[in-house]
Amino acid sequence: MASSSSSSLSRVVVKSSDNNLFVVNKKVASQSQLLKQCIDNMEEKGTNDVILIPLSNVTSNILTLVLEYCEKHADFADDDNNNQELKQWDHEFLKKFDYATLNSLTMAADYMVTKSLLNLCCQFIADSIKDLTVQQIRQIFDIKNDFTPQEEADIKNENAWAFR
């Protein structure tokens, strides 16, 4: 933990893109490098006001999830012995979400610079698309195939080793 002087605040207020306010414990907020940087900057200025951090890219339903993750990980921040329990929790945490939520969560983790959550989301998405066919991926994620059949065949030829 960073050193905390007597004047520093124990909580910050985070505002979601849809203008909901979240009061967040500083230790929890520090799981996000973006929030941590904001807090550090404000503390350097020696402010005694409540710090309000607006997040213009994160909606409140997604922010709730990111903060749930940060809170859990802040609890475990000081001890490595419970890694297994935390991993289990991570898995159960992500398992609940549909792809749309998972993708929004991934973007939020990237924006808020919560690296461990970003890695976790990427791994989860990779695991879930690993065994899908290209057609299935297009269907599930509603991606339009903008290749002509000829172009698609050319790419397959070019990387023939991968399609064998």
Partner: peptide, 10 residues
């Protein structure tokens, strides 16, 4: 939001 809206880096 679908996977296609993720940034290239992600």
């Amino acid at each position: 939001v679908n996977i296609d809206s993720l940034s290239e880096a992600i």
